[in-house]
């Protein structure tokens, strides 16, 4: 579903990603862990071209992203994204947050869009919040709306950029629950996270990144219990 070949990313003189190769299969849940500044968020943002790629290839669903011929907006409709800071549209009601892109990009008629979006809100447990504004909701609820908003485009895969890092501890669970449900339904997911419990339980594969490169990857139980690299071991030691 996603193929990454020799991905490099530079901000000015700083090389943030130093040649990443990665393959993500349909329905796979890949979790990325690593210290801050290791480039994991940048990596994720390269997968839908929120960050332009400096060198290398990113191929999503058969389309090469850094090809001028590729319609990046089309690719993005297939790749949902959830942000650390939610980034809901504060001037729009919850239901309007969900309906905007389907109506404007996919040209779904309003009635159909509303019905589908209400179902999605039900699915994330917020059917009763449709007519409220984002700032009236708790952080956990806002992030669930953000997930529903991404799902409203019926994407083939979802990117999560530290979706629970901005949440109060007691609100983390409800968001992870929604993500788990999504994973169980077979959604392809790429998750940058500090939630080791989630990575262990839901992840099919875990990547450990440090200094702009993938240091180690493997099945969660293997990587968490018997890390091969010293850096992985040191990192896990500090946080577990």
């Amino acid at each position: 579903m996603i193929t990454v070949k020799n991905l490099h990313k530079q901000f000015g003189d700083t090389e943030v990603l130093k040649g990443i190769d990665c393959e993500i299969q349909p329905s796979e849940v890949v979790c990325v862990i690593g210290p801050s500044g290791s480039g994991k968020s940048t990596f994720l943002r390269c997968l839908n071209m929120l960050e332009p790629v400096t060198k290398g290839e990113v191929i999503v669903d058969g389309r090469r992203l850094n090809d001028p011929e590729t319609n990046i907006n089309m690719v993005r409709t297939e790749v949902g994204m959830v942000f650390q800071q939610f980034n809901l549209f504060p001037h729009k009601k919850v239901i309007e947050n969900l309906m905007l892109a389907p109506q404007k990009v996919r040209k779904v008629p309003e009635k159909d869009a509303r019905e589908r979006c209400l179902n999605l809100l039900e699915k994330v447990g917020l059917g009763d919040k449709a007519e409220e504004y984002p700032q009236q909701l708790s952080g956990g609820q806002q992030q669930r709306v953000a997930i529903a908003r991404a799902l409203a485009m019926e994407p083939k895969m979802m990117l999560f950029d530290e979706p629970t890092s901005a949440l109060d501890p007691e609100l983390v669970g409800e968001v992870l629950e929604v993500m788990k449900q999504l994973a169980n339904e077979g959604m392809t997911m790429f998750v940058v996270t500090h939630e080791m419990g989630f990575a262990r339980e839901v992840g099919d594969r875990v990547l450990f990144m440090d200094e702009g490169a993938i240091v180690e990857e493997g099945k969660p139980e293997q990587l968490f219990s018997t890390p091969q690299s010293e850096r992985t071991a040191a990192f896990l030691n500090k946080i577990l």
Partner: peptide
């Protein structure tokens, strides 16, 4: 906040649509 533009773009809206609606 730049996250608003990113959120719009990540949903597949183009630059002008994001400016106009968001």
């Amino acid at each position: 906040d730049s996250g608003q533009m990113e959120a719009g773009r990540s949903l597949g809206l183009n630059h002008n649509q994001t400016m106009r609606y968001i």
